[in-house]
Amino acid sequence: PQLADQKTLARQIYEAYLKNFNMNKAKARTILTGKTSNPPFVVHDMETLQLAEQTLVAKMVGSAGALKDREAEVRIFHCCQCTSVETVTELTEFAKSVPGFSSLDLNDQVTLLKYGVYEALFAMLASSMNKDGLLVAYGSGFITREFLKSLRRPFSDMMEPKFQFAMKFNALELDDSDLALFVAAIICCGDRPGLVNVSHIEVMQESIVRVLQLHLLANHPDDTFLFPKLLQKLADLRQLVTEHAQLVQEIKKTEDTSLHPLLQEIYRDMY
């Protein structure tokens, strides 16, 4: 009966993942390996960026026209924020579908999201990356790593650490069913600062982590160390988010750019 419960939990989490996230690894890999009839538009310089803005991301950038005269770095930063806000919204809906999450103390739900969403976001972002670039605009565009690196500082420092993480993370060859449980484990984490009912969350965390371990053994029988490797990735993601939050604070201080209110809430008093 216990094994049946664990399989049910794994299935519920996987279904919630497929339902709530617009992009997933299977979709992204189909596009990145050229198996679609419509290959993504490649952004590799200022000219192709402008072309992409006129077509693919017109809604994001051009809505108020407020950004059209701003420099490319600021426009890209704004696009990143829009994507982040969408993913945070998807992650919130995903979290609510994880059995037990919605019955947690509401303030604890907020704390789990505040600290978990960026770790989850960077873990999932790896699915849309290869060594040369990143899928954007729901997979209709591909922005090259070299172009992102060529932006002026501090914007050029934004994505390179995520590519470096993604290359190592992608080498683990997780599929969407593994990622669903991994993302759930990131969110249901008992040691986030300020949690009120830690024991309640630890019970949830324990069952998700156990299900993740069993699922990995079944899904990757040849990689017996995959589970401990993934636990290490949790620590790496925490470090990645800490550095990202510092960079965003620096950009906020030194650049004339606005930060979306939802992201401000998340970053404020984070670490």
Binding site: V88, T89, T92, E93, I266, D269
Partner: peptide
């Protein structure tokens, strides 16, 4: 609670869109 108004709103109401 005031510090995380939008997160609270997202958690309590799935239909409420977040303005971009």
């Amino acid at each position: 609670k005031e510090k995380h108004k939008i997160l609270h709103r997202l958690l309590q109401n799935s239909t409420s869109p977040v303005e971009l």
